[in-house]
Write a protein that binds this DNA or RNA. Structure first.
Lengths: 161, 161, 161, 161
DNA sequence: AATGAATGAGTGTTCATTCAT
DNA sequence: GATGAATGAACACTCATTCAT
């Protein structure tokens, strides 16, 4: 059933945010949903499949903010808002970015996303390097959710000058 | 002997950069140095001690760049140079930052360092939030060593305008 | 399955009698039953749990002899018979008594048992100290199963004079 | 030097009483005396040698009470006194008795001692089985140092009737 | 879809012992 | 007599995965 899949993805998401990808235990995911850990393999043949599904869903949550039709202001405001309402998303992203270095399956998910994101930003900014600057800052700001919105606003102000 | 300790720290450093903190195996560290894995515990009672020593040494490598007497230009140039010559240092920092969330011993090392860094930056910049902006960007830029120096230079230009 | 649990408890019992609690190896227990040592942890999360189960079952084997409704003669005859048919039970008891000094979980099992035993004996004997005398002698007699029944009979004769 | 040896035996004695023979760590013995654990092997080639030395010294402490020239009253009074002043000696004896089952070297020490003890007692008692009774009770009484002297006195009274 | 038993490769850690200095 | 580095066998315990039911 797809409902069970969604439950498992949600539980895995929370557990990754709490304990990291390396700290993720399939037993814990199954327990959080109330099923036996061997049943989890019925929905996700392998642990990597589950992690990919989590990554996929998290990436989808970012998509609206990364669409090509926005202004830079809207884009950064949306991300700043997301940092406040969904800091878990950014924690997960950092986990995935780090994991992508070693896991080609995750890299295949994260790479194109960054490429699309960079393309969208390039269209909104005079200098291409500023796209990389925004991406770097957004990714780095996720470390401190408290100051992140202010940091993003400061960057926006600098870029609009 | 301290030479052996240094060798082990170096090997552990490389292995963390290659496989992540979670992927670090004490057996691999010992093998890289050519000793039995049980001998490693003669030098580092616990795996956590070894990781702490690696963190300590890496942090020390950053210290010259974070000193309080510099100009912002010098500071960012030093970091940009470091990103090119020692990208491993930034990979390790991202690992440690992520680990600090869950490991208080690492947090105790990383927290004060960021505090000192922020203080140094605040003294060089008109707006305190810019200190956080620089930190966020530097940390985020470590993801892409290729574009990192250009990103840092772009940030510097914006801040000096 | 509970049958497997019972098998493991039995095997652990025999191995403790043969090599002592300290000499108990979970691998040996699993091997004696013909399963992988990791499967043992499916039935007993920890080695201590297994030992507790062994202690529990051994204590249960004594219970009929320690019931409150007997005469002293019946009581000591039952124990003497047990010493001949099941000397392993007394070897195990000595192991557990010694272990109880250092292991609170075992102490929690052995303490109440001795208390109940002493209470039963006190009801059958004119002087309370004789209850302690019987307990001490029974425990000490376990060292030499060969002479134990005769020793217990001699004690009975002295107490009935 | 023999002074060092005596120190090590004393420390090992205390540690066995505290943590059992199985819980004895040569490192702990060395540390208690203030030397490196590898130096311990200079005085005692093997851990078993150290334990044997401890057993030997403890057995010597009992010898005065087990001499052949005493009366039964003196003998039991001496043991009762020893139980109060040196309960550690009885804890150690129980450890050694249990160990003797599995360790022939310890058995070679404990066996003859029990034989001599039994011979002395047989000379003082009308029925040979009473010798075994006394030995069993003394060994069993060591479990509860608090009640041990009273138990021994009660046994003495019964035997003198 | 779900379970419980089982697996096996691995994981950090322990510890008595050896040996060159 | 003493040390520190090193060893290697052992150890309990973990965990993703498989499979019969």
């Amino acid at each position: 059933m797809t409902a069970r899949r969604a439950q498992l993805i949600e539980a895995a998401h929370d557990l990754i945010v709490a304990h990291g990808i390396a700290g993720l235990r399939t037993r814990a995911v199954a327990a959080a949903v109330g099923i036996d850990h061997s049943t989890l393999h019925h929905h996700f043949p392998t642990k990597a499949d589950l992690i990919e599904a989590v990554a996929d869903r998290a990436l989808a949550a970012f998509r609206p903010a990364e669409g090509p039709t926005q202004t830079l202001t809207e884009h950064l405001r949306h991300l700043a808002a997301l940092m406040t309402t969904r800091p878990d998303l950014f924690t997960l992203m950092r986990e995935l970015d780090l994991h992508a270095t070693r896991d080609t399956a995750i890299a295949a998910l994260m790479g194109p996303r960054d490429d699309r994101w960079r393309a969208s930003l390039t269209a909104l900014l005079p200098h291409p390097v500023h796209a990389d600057l925004v991406i770097a800052t957004v990714k780095g700001a996720g470390n401190h959710p408290a100051t992140a919105p202010a940091v993003l606003k400061a960057l926006l102000d600098l870029l609009r000058k």
